[in-house]
Design a protein around this nucleic acid. Sequence first.
DNA 1: AGGTGGACCCGAACGC
DNA 2: TGCGTTCGGGTCCACC
Length: 275
Amino acid sequence: MPELPEVETIRAQLAPLLEGRCFQRVSILDTRLTRPHDPREVAAELDGEDVAALERRGKYLVVRFRTGRSLLIHLRMTGSLHHAPVGTLEVDPYRRAVVTLDNGSDVAYRDVRRFGTWLLLEPGELESYLGVKVGPEPLGSEFTTRFLRGRLTARKAPLKAALLDQRTVAGLGNIYVDEALWLARLHPLRAAGTATPEEVRAVHRGVRRALQTGIARQGATLRDYRTPDGGSGSMQDEFKVYGRAGEPCPRCGTPIEKTRAGGRGTWYCPACQRR
DNA sequence: AGGTGGACCCGAACGC
DNA sequence: TGCGTTCGGGTCCACC
């Protein structure tokens, strides 16, 4: 479940290894990865591209090439990237692609459940593509309390569903939404449009706090998530509510409860986060 | 139009 | 022990 903090950690670690390097040889091992495009054609198009920058938008990893093209990588649930010297990659039945760089190293893409996607965009296509998919960066200046209020008012969907909508704010997933709502002391099933300006402000703060903590801890390693050097994150040790049903709320001691919101397993404190 | 639920995928956890 | 069943999660899409 790579969410914004996990993708950002991957980006930060991989950027100095990729920037200025050339994709010498690309092999795509899973036909699903580039659907609906032919993986052999995409691999051939990527061969020889020079990396200008590695960026992130929401949960998307964006490889920007000197040609102006960009490769949009979405890890979905179980995608991960691993960097290693050429010839040292171990056999992995879940490897879906390998990029050999021009400095004698490989970047291997692994994805157990095969939900992840690689999309090659031509120059100029990136902005319009992302524009319809994702809202503002939660840690950027465009994500203001005012903007969030505009996105939440008149919405009847549960607060959690509204925050999982990537157009409300980019990068939140199941884990960080629960953590953010606990910080904001708001019930995940509360209708989004009923939040007062003061409560929206608390959500705004909670979202930022949860994500900043996640980045500082290099993400949460529950099962599949690894940093490109094979390391783990430690955010799982900081979870206040996620996955902690029955355990005491760190704020008031009331046992954490589990419910369902937006079709997802949802954890909250029934005392701190009243409906 | 906005909201909801199923499909996609597959290992892990669970139930008998 | 060994099997079958259920679960979960991000996003898209069909349906209300």
